[in-house]
Design a protein around this nucleic acid. Structure first.
Lengths: 141, 141
DNA sequence: GAAATATAGTAAGCATACATACTATTAATA
DNA sequence: TATTAATAGTATGTATGCTTACTATATTTC
């Protein structure tokens, strides 16, 4: 099995392509946001408010990583952090007004851009890819 | 389309899983090497000797990234860098004896571990995934 | 209820990963 | 051939992404 047929290598390349497509689109829209930051905002839009640890669990981040992501989103004014009343260790994260506005502007753009990531695949192949990837990702260990 | 059905998100999760599987195996083998470092060594094993820029082009790294990767491989004594005689800007990179030994020990392990990355998929699905990913990755823009 | 354990968030360290800018050198072109 | 453009590698800066360690708090267990 050559390197180029190894799932590990192919997946790295796909991830590379995925980020490229995302970044180009954001540049075109003149928005300063990464795909990871978008995912965090997506989780917050769906759930309205979450502790950082919940966000991490929801979209499979490391809790150290999410801290930095949330930091940067906070600096841009798109999310806010308030201490939890129930748990003095925890912080509640919510989208701000401007964060929600940006997210709603962005959502259709990001949805449309998904087909560019798998550009060489037709509709049927794309559906298949999503199915296969979903199975692999949901596997426990 | 929900976040969890977006190729971008699924690909990030796959990459995460891929690295986890690789790292666990290396820990088990008590080897200090990353998947990216392995890919660079793989390219060098195939081509015997390459300039850094060639390695980067061969396996689709950024040339700034490859610099650091080669640095770390050099520190471990697995590759060596010598100035090119034909081009005073360039450096020729080759696997050292110990680098080649490590690579040959590692190669079958890494090949075997590929199926763990796509753990939930059967043989046929894995083949299909590799086909689809190969198409998407080879797409120009 | 006190001690042991687990959890939330942060900090520090390492390794990608890319953009941009820079130096030295090479190639292309006028 | 003199100038311009391109390339090889490095340096710097930003953003993941993870591990380990740490503090403060909660939860569990005895």
């Amino acid at each position: 099995m050559t390197l180029f047929a190894m799932p590990g290598h192919l997946i790295r390349r796909l991830q590379q392509r995925s980020n490229q497509v995302f970044q180009e689109k954001m540049k075109q829209l003149e928005l300063d946001i990464t795909s990871v930051q978008f995912a965090a905002m997506h989780a917050l839009y769906d759930e309205k408010q979450m502790e950082q640890a919940q966000i991490a669990a929801h979209i499979a981040y490391d809790k150290a990583t999410i801290g930095g992501v949330i930091d940067r989103l906070e600096k841009k004014g798109w999310i806010s952090r308030t201490p939890s009343l129930k748990d003095k260790r925890a912080k509640i994260v919510t989208l701000t007004k401007s964060g929600e506005a940006i997210f709603l502007q962005l959502l259709p753009e990001v949805q449309n851009l998904q087909s560019d990531i798998l550009n060489g695949l037709d509709q049927q192949q794309t559906t298949l890819f999503i199915e296969l990837a979903s199975i692999a990702v949901s596997q426990k260990k």
